[in-house]
Design a protein around this nucleic acid. Sequence first.
DNA 1: ACCTGAACACCGTTCAAGT
DNA 2: ACCTGAACACCGTTCAAGT
Lengths: 228, 228
Amino acid sequence: MATKARRAPRRTDALSREVIVEAATQILDTGGEEALTLRALTVRLSTGYGALYHHVANKDDLLAAAADAVIARAMTDVTAEGEPRETLRAIALSLFDAINAHPWLGAQLSRGPWRPALLEIYESVGEQLEALGVPEYALFDSAGALVNYILGVAGQNAANARAAKDVDRTASLAAVAVQWAQLDPARYPRLHKAAARLREHDDRRQFLAGVDLFLAGIETVRRRLPEK
Amino acid sequence: MATKARRAPRRTDALSREVIVEAATQILDTGGEEALTLRALTVRLSTGYGALYHHVANKDDLLAAAADAVIARAMTDVTAEGEPRETLRAIALSLFDAINAHPWLGAQLSRGPWRPALLEIYESVGEQLEALGVPEYALFDSAGALVNYILGVAGQNAANARAAKDVDRTASLAAVAVQWAQLDPARYPRLHKAAARLREHDDRRQFLAGVDLFLAGIETVRRRLPEK
DNA sequence: ACCTGAACACCGTTCAAGT
DNA sequence: ACCTGAACACCGTTCAAGT
């Protein structure tokens, strides 16, 4: 307490990319995207900026790595034992839950189809669609549509989580419902009417309904081709 | 040239929220999201920070307003004259084209279903689904699924545009295709194989294929109910 | 009411210097 | 090789002061 320029307590164990990514993930989960600053990381890991940049290219790299780790975990959680349709629903739900638990994933998944996290998703979805019997010519479009749907929901979920913050989910849903109800019925008749439905709606259930809609569409493509 | 602290040329016409939003849109279109700084706006409009903040709450507000204007224009471009199915495809394509022309829209559309831009989209999609004969109990989920699909594609498009920058589209597609081809065939067999297809694929066509897949799925819901 | 621009707090990133 | 931390360039935002 006496010496004013006391050296910061030096960490004993070596730093590593994994340790940094892990710490970043915890900061993101606890405080959201805005809480993750390089400064916050140096404090948490009792280290300096240079040490971080020695293991990580930059902040984007760090965010991408954190997203990859979380997605990979979510994908391996799914057992591909059962029926392809059920496995697809399980994949979708696992992703939904992961994005809900880590809302910052939303922004990371909109970063182009070459990031590892998306590769993982495309591969798994493609595998199950193939098992489902989707003909090869339709596989590319079908997988793209399903993944993009998942990403769309991911983005909206992230936005909701960002807006909700500490407020609980039902309260913020109710707030939006109130807004919709106040919309001019002449200009937005359907939204105005749907406000009631919005309040009682279940994100997860609606997400799955969308997946099923999509699978039903796939089914029609599959049937369009004669048994081979 | 002699006086060192010459007063900046003062604008003669009054500033307004519309003028600011318009200027912001042009900066975004020309230089991308990162080009829009408050500084750049003051230079372009030959004004000061306070003037901007007098008409606009903050940068987020400005971005949202720019997005609303572009989306509203894209939606009114669509004529709702023909068959609902064709109108839905036209809405989807109009949005796709708008997002392509203004890639910064991608991030703005992932901001929760209470922003005006999304209200516009939900209302129009809902209207056409209703006209298509989707029963009321399924309207909410169907509209949600379709809009979320569009948003997912929007996010990916924005990411592509961000990555492509000056590089032309086919070149960056080819680059991703090369990456996919280099993936370990044991770990990513389907992506590895799909690399060839990726190179020759057409974003816009694939987007529409996804829309059709959803519409086909919706059709099965519609048929599940007896004629009323 | 509308606008100016210096100042503030806070970013991500760099780099000379230490061990 | 791995790490430290002052320094740099650049944000969005504020606000006392002008017209």
